[in-house]
């Protein structure tokens, strides 16, 4: 199988993405290496075939967004919205990620070895996110389904207005969002954390994680709450 290199200092981003959208589906190339990404937006977005894309450098906004089945590895940092809306496959950021990482992801696995910015996993819809470092404020806001494993700390209002997504946090939580609570870990939770850490290639003892889930009080209208939650 072939390994193809796109140097974005020489080749346009559009050429790379068009290759990934069209020719890559033929299955003749199984690995694409991207050099000099230099913070360009929309690198390897909307992929729909099991190709591996290795990006060497820092990516701009929305890298690996809307991903399906592909594996996108960023050997550097990622800008806003990395892996947003992904459906399946893997997006792996070796450095840090900016705001809105994995926003609204329906499936697949997003791994961030470093820290993630604010609003990580906002409106998560079924994807899994593993963050080796800490996440910023308002992470998992209104997350509906899926799992987040946070190996470091969480910022303010973690999981505010959470639906059925489940969060596992190893470090400190600066403050909990509305309608979230810390729950006891079950054997299934330990197994889930162990499995996600293994997939992410990050080593921690699952026993060190706590589970954060919805209190489900916001599911029902409470006229006596006086808008205080």
């Amino acid at each position: 199988m072939e390994n193809l290199t796109f140097d974005l200092a020489q080749t346009s981003l559009r050429e790379l993405n068009q290759f990934l959208h069209n020719d890559a589906k033929k299955g003749e190339v199984d690995k694409v290496t991207v050099l000099n990404p230099d913070g360009a937006h929309n690198i390897a977005v909307g992929l729909d075939c099991p190709v591996t894309v290795e990006v060497h450098g820092h990516a701009g906004y929305y890298a690996g967004g809307m991903n399906k089945t592909a594996r996108v590895v960023i050997h550097g940092s990622a800008g806003t919205g990395v892996g947003e809306n992904m459906m399946s496959g893997v997006v792996h950021v070796k450095g840090f990620a900016s705001n809105g990482a994995g926003a609204s992801a329906h499936g697949g696995l997003l791994v961030i070895d470093g820290d993630a910015g604010l609003r990580c996993g906002i409106s998560l819809k079924g994807g899994d996110i593993v963050v080796g470092g800490s996440v910023g404020s308002f992470s998992a806001f209104m997350a509906q389904a899926g799992r987040m494993v946070i190996c470091g700390d969480a910022g303010d209002a973690l999981g505010d207005s959470l639906y059925e997504a489940v969060l596992y946090v190893r470090g400190n939580i600066k403050s909990m969002g509305a309608d979230t609570q810390i729950e006891p870990m079950s054997d299934a939770d330990y197994a889930a954390v162990a499995d996600l850490l293994r997939q992410a290639g990050i080593e921690h003892n699952p026993k060190e994680f706590k589970r954060v889930a919805s209190k489900r009080e916001l599911y029902y209208w409470n006229a006596d709450a006086n808008q205080e939650y």
Binding site: N36, D38, G39, A40, G57, H58, G60, Y61, G79
Partner: peptide, 8 residues
């Protein structure tokens, strides 16, 4: 604001 202004 973004890394693309630092890349050079």
């Amino acid at each position: 604001s973004e890394f693309r202004s630092l890349a050079h």
